[in-house]
Write a protein that binds this DNA or RNA. Structure first.
Lengths: 305, 305
DNA sequence: TCATATATACTCATTAAGAGCATATATAGC
DNA sequence: GCTATATATGCTCTTAATGAGTATATATGA
């Protein structure tokens, strides 16, 4: 034991007062694409001050959002806490960000903006984003120049040079583009910047964090079911997974794995399609819900890396 | 779009000032067991106020700890942010907790307490914790009584009834014991409580969060190497993984997988043992380091669930 | 009847993972 | 030299998960 560690570090030496704000990333699915609720022409998330009467942060967030919007929140998860100095005022601003899922519902369309409006390169369900990926690869190669470590990093994060695309790395991809000056938020810009909406403050970074987290979350927990209607077809489930992961999947294998997991049970009802055979409606199996959540049963998605 | 969502939620309506504190969970390995730095007879973590001059929370944490203790921090990660009302003062206390790894070093023994002093049931490397697990199982069965959902949850979280033990569920296990009144921190206690040190405030809950996170982290990133000396034997590496995961592993398979991953490279040096053949010293392969971190290359641990 | 879309049953190859057996190899101590 | 000890390595097996493909019912609207 080194001696100076035995001196307790002073607690509350000089308490610095902070303004504390809760930031909510509210996610739902519409048009087979993940959407978020935004304010200010898509450049901000709803946010509000932390109230004294909030007993816990999570409860505070839920109450506040439900009160303001009337929306019921599903799976809720703390993302990250950021701090900015408030210049000249001698105190700081702390922002605690949360992500919450909202069930798809015909009565409202919460969704204002597609997440992929902000990160067009993250939607790789079809080949439409390939040209953009090629542009990014070229611009990154130029930025990396002859720095091989830097290029190594680009290649792994963006799945170039024989590397597989890993959908959970969306935050790292955004950070890399930021460093390379390819997004308008970069302190120095390597104009022209890439397509994709930007946001105020570090909100787009928070959104990239949310995208990473939701992609990881749906793989290991049944959180997707908080985005789908109570009853859904297997195709809807697959499309929701594909929408979030930004990747297409093999239908037969998807069903094999879904039914192995016993996460869903069929109902007596059927979909009413415009054409073709009506699809059976399923529901999230309530009896195994908690069980699977905790055991880390994973939903089928192509294995990463 | 439902109409009232178009009204922006007021920002900064009534800023509530908070005291903000950084809490550090400093982890290192000694005696083949993960240890943490604690204060106040093991009942608190080092913590200190957030300073105005800290540009980012993570940097603020690093500077503050390094200044106070002289320790270099390795892998650092934000854990969770908690809030408590400060009664009668009209404002709140926000605590932002971080976990950081500290390299094993002969010059200091940072470690004051074994993590398993707080969670004796989490160390399942040998059969020594089996009797305790049996006691827990009985007490939980009594608590669950005839509530089958409740028992279902107990069984999956604690690996009872044909369920596999999942080392990453340490937080859920602690929360379950809390609910069942089997830890002294519970608001209602189901005395006698289980063995294991407790801590002030929700610090023991933060520690359970840290344990979950580090177990997940070492599986998917090379963060363990920030706990080991620069040069280490393969047995040391395996023992470090076992110490953190709380599980024993198969030596041959461990080595097969480690060498497949190409995460380590041999040095020219050897260990000097008291007995037996000297072991070759390895180092974390610097050239593939970043690569593997980002690709999510995983270190071998028995598959969960 | 045909187009369309759901639903299901298979096969096949590859890989990872868990477990075990055997056998070198290098040191200290007797 | 011999033995105990611990490192280091090679090999076989089995099982399960994964990715991909082929084929074929089945139920609707037009």
């Amino acid at each position: 034991m080194i001696s100076h560690l035995e001196t307790p570090i002073p607690i509350h030496a000089q308490p610095v007062l902070c303004e504390t704000e809760l930031v909510a990333v509210l996610v739902s699915i519409s048009n087979n694409t993940p959407h978020i609720l935004t304010l200010d022409q898509g450049s901000a998330f709803p946010s509000g001050p932390l109230m004294v009467e909030h007993r816990s942060l999570q409860k505070g967030m839920r109450n506040w959002v439900e009160q303001q919007t009337g929306l019921k929140l599903g799976h809720t998860e703390q993302l990250y806490t950021f701090a900015d100095p408030l210049h000249g005022r001698g105190h700081q601003m702390v922002r605690i960000s949360y992500m919450a899922f909202i069930r798809q519902n015909s009565e409202h369309t919460l969704a204002e903006r597609s997440i992929y409006d902000y990160f067009p390169w993250e939607d790789r369900r079809d080949r439409a984003s390939d040209p953009l990926l090629h542009i990014i690869a070229e611009r990154l190669r130029h930025w990396a120049d002859n720095n091989s470590n830097r290029w190594q990093r680009c290649a792994t994060v963006f799945g170039l040079d024989n590397h597989a695309w890993n959908d959970e790395l969306s935050l790292q991809r955004y950070e890399l583009l930021w460093e390379a000056g390819l997004v308008p938020e970069s302190t120095w810009q390597n104009a022209p910047v890439l397509p994709g909406l930007s946001m105020h403050r570090d909100y787009r970074r928070i959104l990239a964090t949310a995208l990473s987290r939701m992609r990881a979350k749906i793989r290991y927990t049944p959180a997707v079911f908080d985005l789908l209607p109570r009853q859904f077809t297997l195709l809807q489930l697959q499309q929701a997974m594909e929408a979030l992961a930004g990747r297409a999947m093999h239908k037969q294998n998807f069903r094999r794995l879904v039914q192995q997991q016993k996460l869903v049970s069929r109902t007596a009802e059927y979909d009413s399609p415009t054409q073709g055979r009506p699809a059976q409606l399923y529901q999230f199996a309530p009896e195994t819900a908690e069980h699977c959540y905790l055991a880390g049963a994973k939903l089928p998605l192509p294995a990463i890396s």
